[in-house]
Structure formats: structure tokens, C-alpha cells
């Protein structure tokens, strides 16, 4: 395994245990998802891998080398796209990506060729010579990805790479993330966007309160909910949610949008109930489908707000968070 993390623990001064015995490993060529809500300990873990934070306990090795003892090696081995978009005011994407590639040790002509290839693949070439101050958030995020990918380390850490990116370029971005793995790098993908992660990662770990609560491939994790279906309900404006029938195992969300889990054996009953409610004007629309990784996530973490980024949705309003995640995933 290229990256091995064993029993990693980190507490902040106020006593909060940000990482509480995390163990996971990522192989070369693998895209590994790290899922969890805001404050689950994802970024703390990443910062320990790249040597910005010192763990209280546990080990981290990259290619067998102890990077807690040798953080300089970690910086050479890892390239990172941080969660906060790097401001590049005054620099054009061309300049920023080229300079970071060369600071990472790339040869000037190699770096330029790869930069141009990435810009073309991400369809952002038209802004290559625009001052960073005039770029939209999504384009800056894609430039941040190119900065991590232009002279990649053996481990590439991407922290929420798709935030602010439009749906078309998101797909282009996922193709490039996959390509990094196919070229032999280990990719650690930090995200709260469960639906997108499901399609992009080989394996994943779900973090909650600083602990790994599940690991596996998306298919392995979905076995937990193999007998469940998800029923998405959208209420007509002004309509109140009717009493839920007993076959609804769980319901999250509030306001107009609800996400219910029903047993597969109750599929016909669920459609009948929802269709009747649509006809009498309670539901604007409904959708029944197989349970997704998102449903696994909600079941494991137990809180729908876990799906949202705390910056976008107050924790006290779980429904907004859920909706937000789904809109983003669309």
C-alpha cells in the first residue's frame, strides 16, 4: 500500500478529538474516497499526512517511509488541492499552474505541456490568460485541481475538488481524477458529495466524529441497504406531509422535500400510496429507486445534515442540508 495510516489520533487543545484511532490504506492506482460531514476529522487527517499537523499517536507511512519523522518527504510525495480555493489574484491560470509545477520539481517544458493538456481536458483554456481575480469560483477550483495534478506526487489529495464547479465540467474533472489513478498515483478524495463519490471512487471510508465507521467498495457498503428502496417525495407548495404508512422505515428531510426509505418488498404499496397522494394534490412528484450510497451514509451517520457542508447549511436545519447535497449531486 502506498499510504498506510494506523491508529491515528489527534486532539486539539480544547480537548476535541478530531481523529480518534483512524486506520486506512490507499494503494497506488486507487481512488480512495474519504466521506464525512463537516468536522468529522477529514481535513485534520489530511493535514497530518502532509506534515502540517503532528499526530498525538499513531503512524503514517508513504511508500513504507515514516512521514511523521520525515515531513519533508511527505511534501515531496504528496500534491494537494486544499479545501479553501487558493486565491491567485495577479496570476493567470497559465502562470499559477506552471509555477507550482516547477516548484514541485517539474521540468519547464514538461510542466507546460501537461498544463495545456489539463486545461484542454477541463475545458478552461479560454481563461488560461485571465487574471485570477476575474475568474469564477468554479474555474478557480479547476485551476486548483490543475495545480495539484500538473506535477503530481505519488499521493494526490483532493479536498472537495468539485465545489462550485458546473455539472458539465464536473464530469470532465472526474475523468481527470480517474486518469490520475490510472497513471499510477494514489488519489485520496475528500468529499461530502456522496452521490458523486459513489461513481468516482474504488474504495472509501466514512468518517464520523474522528472515527472510521465503515470502509469498503461502494458496492460492499450498499449491501447494507440491499433490501431497501429510496422514495423521494416532493410536496406541492403549501401541502402538509401526510402521515407516513408503516412500510416507511425512515424519513429524512423537511419542508417540501423528503427522502424516505422503504423495504423492497413494499415497492408496489409505496408506489400506490405515493401515486394516490400525487393525484389528490399532496405530492408534486415522487421517485422510487434503489438505495444509494447516500442512504448507507445517512443510515450510518444517522444525521441527514451530515451530507451537507456546514458552510452552506445550518446544522439545525437538516432538510436544507440534504436538499443541498442532492442539488449538488444533480
Amino acid at each position: 500500500m502506498l499510504l498506510e495510516i494506523d491508529d491515528l489520533a489527534k486532539a486539539y487543545r480544547k480537548g476535541a478529538r478530531a481523529n480518534d484511532g483512524i486506520s486506512l490504506s490507499v494503494a497506488a492506482g486507487e481512488v480512495y474516497g474519504l466521506l464525512g460531514h463537516n468536522g468529522a476529522g477529514k481535513t485534520t487527517m489530511v493535514n497530518q499526512v502532509v506534515g502540517l499537523l503532528r499526530p498525538d499517536a499513531g503512524t503514517i507511512t508513504i511508500d513504507g517511509r515514516d512521514v511523521i519523522a520525515d515531513p519533508g518527504f511527505a511534501r515531496r510525495a504528496c500534491s494537494i488541492q486544499p479545501q479553501a480555493t487558493l486565491p491567485i489574484n495577479g496570476l493567470t491560470p497559465n502562470q499559477a499552474v506552471e509555477m507550482i509545477g516547477r516548484l514541485r520539481g517539474g521540468r519547464a517544458d514538461d510542466v507546460r505541456r501537461r498544463r495545456d493538456g489539463l486545461f484542454e481536458a477541463l475545458d478552461i483554456g479560454e481563461w488560461a490568460r485571465t487574471d485570477g481575480a476575474r475568474l469564477s469560483g468554479g474555474v478557480r477550483r479547476l485551476v486548483g485541481f490543475a495545480m495539484a495534478a500538473v506535477a503530481p506526487g505519488r499521493l494526490i489529495i483532493l479536498d472537495e475538488p468539485t465545489n462550485d464547479v458546473d455539472p458539465v465540467r464536473r464530469r470532465l474533472l472526474w475523468t481527470q481524477v480517474r486518469a490520475l489513478g490510472d497513471e499510477g498515483a494514489a488519489v485520496l478524495l475528500v468529499t461530502h458529495n456522496v452521490v458523486e463519490a459513489e461513481r468516482a471512487v474504488d474504495r472509501l471510508a466514512i468518517l464520523d466524529h474522528g472515527r472510521v465507521i465503515a470502509t469498503g467498495t461502494p458496492a460492499q457498503l450498499k449491501e447494507r441497504v440491499a433490501d431497501d428502496l429510496r422514495l423521494e417525495l416532493v410536496l406541492e407548495p403549501g401541502a402538509a406531509l401526510p402521515e407516513l404508512p408503516p412500510f416507511v422505515l425512515r424519513d429524512v428531510g423537511s419542508g417540501q422535500r423528503h427522502l424516505a426509505t422503504v423495504a423492497a418488498s413494499a415497492a408496489a404499496a409505496a408506489v400506490g400510496w405515493a401515486e394516490a397522494a400525487k393525484l389528490d394534490g399532496t405530492f408534486e412528484e415522487y421517485r422510487l429507486g434503489p438505495a444509494t450510497l447516500e442512504d448507507v451514509y445517512v443510515e450510518l451517520v444517522g444525521r441527514p445534515d451530515a451530507l451537507s457542508n456546514g458552510n452552506d447549511a445550518p446544522a439545525s436545519d437538516p432538510a436544507t442540508g440534504l436538499e443541498d447535497a442532492r442539488v449538488r449531486a444533480a
Partner: peptide, 13 residues
Amino acid sequence: TEGSYEYMRSLPV
């Protein structure tokens, strides 16, 4: 505040 101090610190320089 904007994160560039940390980012630059993460480079192999």
C-alpha cells in the same frame, strides 16, 4: 485567513 500561507507551506520547498 485565506489559506495560501498553509498551501505554500505544503509545497516541497
